[in-house]
Design a protein around this nucleic acid. Sequence first.
DNA 1: ACGCTACTTGACTAATTAGTCAAATCAAGC
DNA 2: GCTTGATTTGACTAATTAGTCAAGTAGCGT
Lengths: 208, 208
Amino acid sequence: MAQITPTPIRLQEALYELMWHQSYGRVTIDAICERAGVRKGSFYHAYPDKATLAIEAFEFAWKNEAKPWLDDAFSPSEAPLTRLANWLDGGLQKTLQCQQEHGKVYGCPLFNVGSELSTLEPTVAEKVVEILRRNRRYIMTALRDAQAEDLIEIDDADEVARDVLTLVEGALTQARISNSADPIRRLPLSVGRLIGALIPRPSNLTVS
Amino acid sequence: MAQITPTPIRLQEALYELMWHQSYGRVTIDAICERAGVRKGSFYHAYPDKATLAIEAFEFAWKNEAKPWLDDAFSPSEAPLTRLANWLDGGLQKTLQCQQEHGKVYGCPLFNVGSELSTLEPTVAEKVVEILRRNRRYIMTALRDAQAEDLIEIDDADEVARDVLTLVEGALTQARISNSADPIRRLPLSVGRLIGALIPRPSNLTVS
DNA sequence: ACGCTACTTGACTAATTAGTCAAATCAAGC
DNA sequence: GCTTGATTTGACTAATTAGTCAAGTAGCGT
């Protein structure tokens, strides 16, 4: 078959979406193959197991979705706190769009799957930690700039960046559990409280 | 067999610990029965399915573990911010003890399982939401008292209580994913930042 | 056109798992 | 001690699932 997209990529996309919408454990190899339009033999030709595929799926999603989005939202061309606003607003918009389409709030696949697999598939959990760390760098940079421009007063940008990410991921998980976007809607105020400043309105109104 | 503990309770305890240490999806009925020392027929005599058992397991754990602990930590006999300190420190101590025993940090079963099941078993997720709400009330009460005693300055105790719980649950999940108690260790400072006050030392040094 | 390699297919096995059920056992009242 | 109802047991079925493999096919360089 002359597939438009190569098999490994289709498998990555299939597992990524399935485990985000359901859970890692609930997704069978058969389900991945069905969604990817591929037979099981091809799966095992491309990957030795589900965990290996999951790791590549996360990396693929980072490179093709998360990173471009974050690079845009956290562009140094914007004022530091506006970057945070763009990021939070972008997440909310994505959530609302997804909610309209599927009737569900799915939260953050990294956090969901990472928490599910930490004790069962350490290699996947390690990948999650790595990507979360990449996320944190964006926040830290913005906070440092905000501090340098006297927009906020914090002692340790790294520590506060951890807290911001923790709060945001916590809210995304709350949103998933309660199937409601409200915890995400509240985030600008909440993050503002945490860093001791008002998060402005976002500048960037595009949604992918 | 004259079991010391009745079968339903043993099943609840078995599933609770297994799904906390592993994940809900990974735990089979057989595994529950084995750990409870009970045959599968008895399981189906006591419960129609795993989800129903999970809901009762959460309620059981609330009544017998969480509530007594929270009632103690958040006792109005203590100063409001000391209550928060007791709560956070108690969680850390539990985590460290568990880490010493099993070599793993498991985080919060409510949040882990809630996030895993929100799209798959809504009834279980609803139970999780309910118990999280109970948790929030303790925080809210302490914050109101702190506000009344001019220890903190917040506009809406309910909103801030949500943020505190979100931050704490987020940190517990981070701790699970990275298998490290550090995110929990940081919590007094982080929560202090969020409510704009220094969390004092805990008064209560007992660990169950 | 030929041959080589990489990929795909479908049919297969073995193992796990949820769920059922009739028979056996227990506990409690009489 | 007997009866009755609740509980437990172990053996069973049917379905799902991971993983294998020999044979087939497509694509590419020559």
